[in-house]
Every structure is written in C-alpha cells, then in structure tokens.
C-alpha cells in the first residue's frame, strides 16, 4: 500500500493520530501532525512511497506541532519533534513542510552511523551512481533535478548513504529540494513534474520540493555501485568544462562532506578510498543545463 492508495481523509486521520508509518529507503518513520500544509505536502510529494499499517517498529518517531501560547494567534509557528524532543528552534508555520524535510534529514544524519553519510546528491544510470558533493550555491540541486527529470534515477538530492561493508549506495529518494531561481528553472523546463508549495524567507531563501519520479521511488530498495564523483559548479556565461579531478583531492573533499567520517573512523577512510579508486573523478563547470546533461549522459565507466 502506498500513500496514493489512501484517500485524503484517511491520510489526514493517520497523520493526526500519529500512525502513518512511511517507508523511505532503508527507514520507516512514524509521523504525527495535524498541520494541513504538511499533510498536503506528503499527499502530493510522497504519493509513491509505501505505508505500513501499525508497523511494530519505527526507526524515527517524528511530529510537527504548533507550539502553544499567544504566538499561536498572531505569529503562528511550527516545531519539529523527534520522539517528543525538539532539536531545533521553531520556524514560521508557512515553513512547516520544509521543516519536515530538514527534520527527516536530521534523523538520518544523527542516527544512521551504520552507514557513511555524505552531504551530496546521488543519481544513477546503468547501475552506476553519480555522486555530486557540493557546497550550497554550486547548483547541485538544480543539476540533480534536471538529471532526474531527464532519465537518471534519483537516489537522493542531499544524502549519499554508503554501506561501508559493500561500498554500495543506498537510495533515499525523498523529494528534491529546490531553492530560489532553480524552482522556476525546473518548473519551466519540466512543466509536468509536480512541485510542492513554496516556503518563502527560510534560512535558505525560497524553498520548494519536487516530487521524485515514480520509477525512482519504486526501486528505492535497489542499491548502486559508485561510478563517478563530480564536483559541479554553475557559473553564468561559462563554457562547458568537464575536467578530471585529482583523486587525492577528491578523497579530501569527500571526507569534508561526510557527516559522520570521524564517527566511523578507519572503516570510513577505507570505504571512501575504495570509492575513489572505483570512480571517475571530475569537476564540471557549466552555464547551460542542456550542455551539461548531454555531456554527463556520455560519461563512461572508468576505473583507475
């Protein structure tokens, strides 16, 4: 049974009562909220994800609630709760769905140290994963959304989850976060793809989430071998430049992008070294999305 199999009233009831058990990648989250924008966001953007009836065990127990007090009336806010505890300060109510997404990422980053978790977008083609670690503003999420809209499978737009034992990447194909100008870029290029409500004035500017393709969600249990590590950079007016990137520098940057490298210690170092061995390492500078997509489609599997 998927989210889309529940009618709106049933979904809202489950969420209100805190018995929506949502399966995303390797995790099951129990979600509770009476906030309508979150309910609508889940209905639209998580349509293809499996739900469980009364799962006996949930990895994460999360809730979004409106804090009590006078503020409720003149400046409504939202809290993210992890098993009854609030790890963050409240945000304005209009940002509730964005906060849900950030909270879900926080759960993984803080509790999934069985895996090595990197801050990177991951897409896949032909069984090989393209890993894109990038600082904010490099155009990572736009490129990721465009790749996914043009046939690559989405593994994750934010979190590369790697099994240190097998070196494989685990999908977590939750909605793709888009920021500011990239929201309109994607809306214009791919008018058929659903994008959720925009949240204005967040810490990251305007934020909206793109619905992940059905195929990516349906194959969310299918792992991928690493194929390429790519450091993309959008620069207005630049000519397309795909250059090999030093492997030592790639390893260094991957470590810098890992959330839990020091938690895992040596297994993380071995795992990322192997990943760098097995991947083509490149930097990409681009201004035209079309050119970038065309070039990345021709990437060959290369091992050192």
């Amino acid at each position: 049974m998927n989210v889309s199999d529940l009618d709106d009233a049933d979904l809202a009831r489950r969420l209100r009562q805190g018995c929506l058990f949502l399966e995303t990648g390797p995790f099951i989250s129990r979600i509770q909220t009476s906030i309508e924008s979150v309910q609508a966001g889940i209905a639209l953007l998580y349509a293809g994800f499996p739900v469980h009836d009364n799962a006996p065990f949930a990895d994460f127990h999360v809730a979004l609630t409106r804090p009590a007090g006078l503020r409720r009336w003149f400046r409504p806010q939202v809290n993210f709760l992890f098993d009854g505890w609030t790890p963050f300060k409240p945000l304005p109510l209009e940002q509730a769905f964005a906060m849900f997404e950030w909270g879900m990422n926080w759960c993984v980053v803080n509790h999934a140290h069985k895996y090595l978790v990197l801050h990177a977008a991951v897409v896949e083609k032909g069984g090989r994963a393209l890993i894109m670690p990038a600082p904010p503003g490099a155009g990572k999420s736009t490129l990721c959304a465009a790749l996914v809209a043009s046939g690559w499978r989405l593994l994750s737009d934010e979190l590369a989850i790697i099994s240190p034992d097998s070196g494989q990447l685990l999908p977590l194909p939750r909605p793709v976060g888009l920021k500011n100008a990239s929201i309109d870029v994607i809306r214009t290029r791919y008018p058929d793809i659903a994008i959720g409500q925009e949240a204005l004035d967040t810490a990251k500017g305007t934020v909206a989430h793109m619905k992940p393709p059905g195929d990516s969600v349906a194959s969310q249990q299918l792992m991928a071998m690493p194929g390429w590590v790519l450091f993309p950079r959008y620069r207005e007016g630049s000519a397309l430049a795909l250059e090999p990137f030093s492997r030592a520098a790639t390893l260094s940057r991957l470590v810098g992008n890992a959330f839990n490298f020091t938690v895992l210690g040596r297994p993380a170092f071995e795992c990322l070294s192997r990943l760098v061995d097995d991947s083509g390492c490149y930097s990409l500078e681009y201004s035209s999305l079309d050119e970038a997509l065309e070039r990345l489609d021709k990437l060959e599997v290369s091992a050192s």
Binding site: S246, A248, L251, S252, V255, G265, F269, E270, S273, V276
Partner: peptide
C-alpha cells in the same frame, strides 16, 4: 600514532586515526 596512507599520482592522503583527521 595510527597512520593510514593512500597515494594517487604522487599525492598522498594521510589518515591519522587517533585524531580522526585526514591530511592531503
């Protein structure tokens, strides 16, 4: 000191397990 090395094309990444830091 527990040191682990990886080398590619004359560049080395050193992992110092005690501190958890890497050095390029």
């Amino acid at each position: 000191a527990r040191l682990h090395w990886r080398e590619w094309d004359g560049e080395v990444v050193l992992f110092h397990e005690n501190s958890g830091n890497i050095h390029h």
